[in-house]
Amino acid sequence: MKELDQPRPRPRRTRADALRNRKAILRAAAGLIIEEGPTAPMERIARRANVGIATLYRHFPDRLVLLREVALNTLRQSAAEARAALIEEPDAFTALARYMHDSIDLRVGAVMPMLVDRLEMDEELTEARRLAQEAHNALASAAHEEGSLRPDVTAGDISLLIIRFTAPLQATSSSEDDNLLNHRHLELMLDGLLRFLSHENLPGPAISFEDLINMGPAPIRANMLRARQHDR
């Protein structure tokens, strides 16, 4: 007699509270990485996320796993925000401005420089970075094509501006104050990116994504030398 087929157990879905805990841990870790560096105590990350230390280690068994997930999550969110801005906004410059404000809230320009020397860029991280750069480049290219972004501003320049605007300010009393000031000063700076307000070429070297990845004195000096030779 043929045995009746037994119903297959359905894969268990991650519970909503587990997803919330994971997001809270990643958010707390990103904040403490910026404030204290990548060696911020795991116990402090758990407290800030309002979870127990056992919950943290259940999601992320060690510090390196957590740091990698923070980087991966940040890059993926950055790419998603750039794509959404380009689709949803009425013009490319508005999309670029929205993306830069979103990047301040994501704190991508503060988190990634902290982690770049700590992580090995495996295939998944490399692909996430490529997609983030691709989405970022699409925004800058669209703004150039519509004639709103001054032609001597590169996507790398915009990335470096985001890094500068997300670095924590020592003089303020809280990260919330930092965030408000960053958004305020970004609005002041955005006028400088508009093509119709530019009257002369920008001084100094243009920054590429490769320069940012290999950021250090040597690439900066090389670019400055090329820029000076071009101006002669």
Rank of each mutant, 00 (worst) to 15 (best):
L4S: 05
L4E: 09
R10M: 13
P11N: 09
A18L: 09
R20W: 02
R22D: 02
A24G: 04
A24R: 08
R27H: 07
A30V: 04
L32R: 10
I33D: 00
I34W: 01
G37K: 03
T39W: 08
P41A: 11
R44N: 04
R48D: 11
A49M: 06
A49G: 04
N50G: 10
I53W: 05
T55V: 11
L56S: 06
Y57M: 12
R58C: 02
V65N: 13
R68K: 13
L72D: 07
L75R: 01
R83V: 00
A84Y: 01
A85Q: 06
I87P: 01
L96F: 12
Y99L: 07
D105Y: 05
A110V: 04
M112R: 02
M112Q: 06
L115W: 00
L115Y: 04
V116D: 12
E124N: 03
L125S: 04
L125C: 05
T126D: 11
R130Q: 06
H136N: 05
N137R: 14
S141L: 13
S141T: 12
G147M: 11
S148T: 13
R150H: 13
V153N: 05
T154H: 06
A155H: 03
D157H: 06
I158D: 06
A171Y: 11
T172L: 15
S173K: 10
S173A: 11
S175Q: 14
L181R: 10
N182H: 15
L190Q: 02
G192N: 07
F196G: 01
L197P: 02
S198K: 13
H199P: 05
G204Q: 14
G204P: 11
A206R: 15
A206I: 07
F209V: 01
F209C: 02
D211V: 15
P219D: 15
M224N: 08
M224H: 11
R226Y: 09
R228C: 04
D231V: 09
D231N: 12
